[in-house]
């Protein structure tokens, strides 16, 4: 597994380099993976890497790019909007000549629609946001400050919001809470009950599961050999 750089379009024009983890041996089948978002990205990072190792073993090249403003990216998260993320994943798919795409959880909201896609346990933008807002309310309450979801989302739509250590911009928040992943017939859905008992994104601490990584890799590998 090697880090690679790819040119990511900047919102105002121009290019910034972003990182991707890759298993690239110029093989015929090349899978772009759009990672889970925010807190779930951390909890599912190891699981995602484990799936990639298995796919590499099955003869499939894999690319796991950073969304601009996350992970190793040097871009500020606060200036990203949802269109920027969609454009970024399109650009990554083009640069790495991906033939297929796998979205993981919130990553399913940003999978390029011009390629054959799998969506693993997709989640709505509103659900991700609700949970992050709730975490902030729990933390504030413990610190003796009263906040409400409604109040926070209203502030967020005007000035952006700090959620779980992520500074998220107003434009992003406004659109993100309306996003749902595509459910058109061309998208192959992989619900969690195909993979294992409970999703690793539920874990308080990042966990791992050999069985679940095997199961997800098998679904993709079989789909690609069909």
């Amino acid at each position: 597994m090697t880090p690679a750089l790819w040119p990511c379009p900047l919102p105002g024009g121009g290019i910034a380099e972003e990182y991707a983890l890759t298993f690239d041996r110029q093989r015929e089948k090349r899978l772009l993976i759009v990672p889970a978002l925010f807190d779930e990205a951390n909890r599912l990072r190891r699981f995602t890497a484990e799936v990639i190792r298995r796919l590499d073993g099955a003869g499939i090249d894999c690319v796991l790019p950073d969304l601009p403003g996350t992970n190793e990216s040097t871009q500020p998260l606060a200036t990203q909007d949802t269109e920027d993320w969609r454009d970024a994943m399109m650009a990554a798919a083009r640069h790495f000549e991906a033939t297929h795409v796998l979205g993981i959880r919130g990553g399913c909201l940003f999978t390029p629609s011009n390629l054959p896609r799998w969506h693993y346990a997709p989640v709505k933008g509103a659900s991700i946001l609700r949970q992050m807002v709730r975490a902030r309310i729990v933390a504030s309450r413990e610190a003796g400050t009263e906040e409400t979801s409604e109040g926070l989302l209203k502030t967020g739509a005007d000035t952006g919001l700090e959620l779980g250590g992520h500074r998220i911009g107003a434009d992003f928040l406004r659109v993100f809470q309306t996003l749902k992943s595509d459910e058109t017939p061309d998208v192959q859905q992989i619900p969690q009950d195909m993979i294992g008992a409970s999703g690793l994104w539920l874990r308080a601490e990042p966990g791992e599961s050999r069985d679940q990584a095997d199961a997800l890799a098998a679904v993709i590998a079989m789909g690609l050999s069909a």
Partner: peptide
């Protein structure tokens, strides 16, 4: 932590 509690409640 607070994030895990939020997940638990959901």
């Amino acid at each position: 932590d607070s994030m895990a509690v939020a997940g638990l409640l959901t």
